[in-house]
Design a protein around this nucleic acid. Structure first.
Lengths: 107, 107
DNA sequence: TCTAATATTCGATGACAATCGAACAATAGA
DNA sequence: TCTATTGTTCGATTGTCATCGAATATTAGA
């Protein structure tokens, strides 16, 4: 089984997190994950092909936004809520709230 | 005198704001502006040439993050604090606080 | 062991962005 | 009107990214 790298709490960079969340598809993904708590790639309904979704999943993981857990043939994504709150208090919450409020669409 | 376009409050997009603030140089710029309230391009000490700084200024303006006021030969930048707070409550504050806390450097 | 399900990796493509230097524009002040 | 100051625009370069389809890897289950 492959090792998936996740940055350490202290290594998470603000600019990287903001970049990861500046893409409408990725904003949608984290919004979905927040609602369900944990979700596999296949359960996330985005208008891109599998390989593209995998790319977005990797971008979010490497920025420190999500944690990816291997479960059988699935990868379960969850938000790194606590780590982000510890490092950047209030940031994730205000982004998710802003996303819900303004209802920004993909594309 | 040239007309500088600023997006309307309601037109400001979350993903565009996050993208604009995902660059270390631009994070530095808004951090400086916050401290001084208003600042001309020439007063912002960043390690890029004038034309590049002009590009960053434009990116921030078009995303709705800063307001640019023409004053003689200078362009005075200020944060659109109220508009951003109205549209995305708490967002700008948490980003600025995160930037100060973690002391992310340019480069 | 074979097959289906799930996701990643790879290669290609097209778009966009950060950067620079040079040229240009606009304005203040002498 | 001339000059210095302050920024913008333009063209070129270099690099990165979002996207796709095809091929590959991994695991569960029959």
């Amino acid at each position: 089984m492959k090792y998936l790298h996740h940055p350490d709490r202290e290594e998470i960079q603000l600019s990287s997190v903001l970049y990861a969340l500046s893409d409408p598809v990725r904003l949608f993904i984290i919004s979905e994950i927040q609602r369900s708590g944990e979700r596999s790639c296949g359960e996330i309904d985005v208008p891109v092909v599998k390989s593209t979704l995998s790319h977005h999943s990797r971008t979010l993981r490497e920025a420190g936004v999500v944690h990816v857990r291997v479960h059988g043939t699935q990868r379960l994504l969850s938000l790194r809520t606590e780590d982000l709150e510890y490092r950047f208090p209030g940031l994730l919450g205000s982004i998710l709230e802003a996303y819900e409020r303004t209802g920004e669409k993909i594309q």
